[in-house]
Amino acid sequence: MIKPVGDDVPMLNLGQPINIGQRTPVDLSQFGRVDDQPSFSSLLKQALDHVNSLQQDTSNRMRAIETGASTDLVGTMIAAQKSSLSFQALMQVRNKVVSAYEEVMRMQI
Rank of each mutant, 00 (worst) to 15 (best):
M1V: 12
M1C: 14
P4I: 05
G6W: 11
D7V: 07
D7G: 07
D7Q: 09
D7A: 08
V9G: 04
P10M: 03
M11L: 14
N13D: 06
N13C: 00
L14Q: 03
Q16P: 06
Q16M: 00
P17G: 00
I18V: 04
G21R: 12
Q22S: 04
Q22A: 08
R23Q: 13
R23H: 05
T24S: 14
T24G: 11
T24I: 04
T24A: 00
P25C: 02
L28T: 05
L28Y: 14
L28N: 09
S29I: 04
S29T: 08
Q30H: 06
F31G: 00
F31R: 01
G32V: 03
R33C: 06
V34K: 05
V34E: 03
V34S: 10
D36W: 11
Q37A: 01
Q37G: 01
S39P: 11
F40D: 14
F40Q: 09
F40W: 01
S41E: 15
S41Q: 07
S42H: 08
K45F: 15
Q46R: 03
A47L: 10
L48R: 11
L48I: 13
L48A: 09
D49G: 13
D49L: 03
H50W: 00
H50Q: 02
H50A: 02
H50Y: 03
V51W: 03
L54T: 12
Q55V: 06
Q55S: 05
Q55C: 05
D57T: 05
S59V: 07
R61S: 00
M62P: 02
R63P: 10
A64M: 05
I65F: 10
E66T: 12
T67W: 14
T67E: 08
G68N: 12
G68H: 02
A69K: 04
A69N: 03
S70I: 07
S70D: 02
T71K: 07
D72A: 04
D72H: 02
V74A: 03
V74M: 06
V74L: 05
T76W: 11
M77L: 05
I78Q: 04
I78T: 01
I78W: 02
A79H: 08
A80L: 10
Q81S: 00
Q81W: 09
S83R: 00
S84E: 13
L85M: 08
S86N: 06
S86L: 09
F87S: 05
F87Y: 11
Q88P: 07
Q88L: 14
A89W: 01
M91K: 13
M91S: 12
M91W: 15
V93S: 06
V93N: 12
V93C: 07
R94L: 10
R94I: 08
N95E: 10
N95M: 10
K96P: 15
V98H: 09
A100Q: 13
Y101E: 15
Y101S: 08
Y101F: 14
E103H: 11
E103W: 08
M105R: 10
M105D: 13
M107S: 08
M107E: 12
M107I: 10
Q108N: 13
